[in-house]
Write a protein that binds this DNA or RNA. Sequence first.
DNA 1: ACCGAATCGGAATGCCCAGTCCACTTTCAC
DNA 2: GTGAAAGTGGACTGGGCATTCCGATTCGGT
Lengths: 232, 232
Amino acid sequence: MNLGAQSSDDPAAQPLRSDAERNRARIVAAARTVFRRDGLNASMASVAREAGVGIATLFRRFPTKEELVAAVFADRMDAYVDAVGVALDDPDPWRGLAGFIETACAMQAADYGFADVLTMTFPTAKALEQRRDQAYEGVVQLIGRAKAAGRLREDFSPEDLVLVHMVTAGVVNATGDSAPDAWKRVVALMLQSFEAPARGPLPDSPEPRALYKAMLRAGQACSTSPEPGRKD
Amino acid sequence: MNLGAQSSDDPAAQPLRSDAERNRARIVAAARTVFRRDGLNASMASVAREAGVGIATLFRRFPTKEELVAAVFADRMDAYVDAVGVALDDPDPWRGLAGFIETACAMQAADYGFADVLTMTFPTAKALEQRRDQAYEGVVQLIGRAKAAGRLREDFSPEDLVLVHMVTAGVVNATGDSAPDAWKRVVALMLQSFEAPARGPLPDSPEPRALYKAMLRAGQACSTSPEPGRKD
DNA sequence: ACCGAATCGGAATGCCCAGTCCACTTTCAC
DNA sequence: GTGAAAGTGGACTGGGCATTCCGATTCGGT
């Protein structure tokens, strides 16, 4: 794993000078802190300040924000993939799925940056997207099993998981520190209506393509503009 | 009603000069367009541009963004209050409540600015907040009746409506034009778990105070900073 | 027509941001 | 030790935004 990454653990590209490696680590740590607190729209300058390095140093190491994001959230994505694994190990597929959703949303609530990451896509961040795909495959299996067990409504689609992440991101965004647990109620509510039997039909799930486009747009917006989301 | 407002229909303050009145109308119309498209974080400058007036003109008429927002969304808020009225007139209180929620969320989807307005509060915009309170009272009644009819889960709280608005805002924000109907599925999902009998207990509803604080913070952020939501 | 007051528009200020450039400093292989 | 390559930080450019100021313009009562 971690095939083409240019991260510190990539032995391919010639190793950084020791001071550069030290600064790189500082930057990633600082970005972790800042993104967790302020979300992905935190400025590069604020990351540099937090890290105690010059702006140029930051940009030399991570020419695009996407690369920085990828480096920072690699481990969160690993945890996300692990959570899928744990869910798949659960003999009760419904409990597994529900637990996974709760865990994943808790990760969003604990890290505003990660909340954003799960609603965006970064095509150039290969390692990150590969992990996302890996998680996706697991989730598809999980969904299949939960439906087979008759515990998950038949019209649930993998896209619904993305919607759940968008919902959670929206709630934690809006409530912030003032009502830090509000998302739990919302997620519980959604889980109750995912459980079979369905209480009624639902409007169609968004097309995977359309949803991907939405996530893509959000990701691009985050690279350059001040605000992830729609804008002029 | 509309007691202390300084809007165009306020006969108290000396009337504006005819050209000023014309510009005021243009500004409000332009702001309506811009806020609908870009949400409340649209810049004052973009409103002035759209209106074809100078920036100073805009600021002279609406010294704060809150005042502009109040002027622009007065009629949307009226429609919102009306929707509550319609719901209260429905002999089936559950159908009334469900229909109201769908209508209100559709209003959010049709106007990004209004989507934001329903998740924020603007203490200085008296007329707007008065309408919000009016709607709130109606909703409380509606909830009471729907519970009495045994169609709404007993642990539903008025705060849940705010959460629904935050959820919808989050989804339309994230999906934008790419998946413009995704919110319908999410709202349908939530409605299904609001319907009695409850499928299970829920985490507590956020404290009204806490939720108010969250809405307040978002509103203040919108007045000055580039981004409604958490930030440095 | 005239004149003062109201109104106008745009330039100016001050802040934050992304991203680049360059003169100075540090590392490390020899 | 030493010198070249790698690395560094801060100044700088260019843009957007909120907000203020002011000289020019327009309205409307006379």
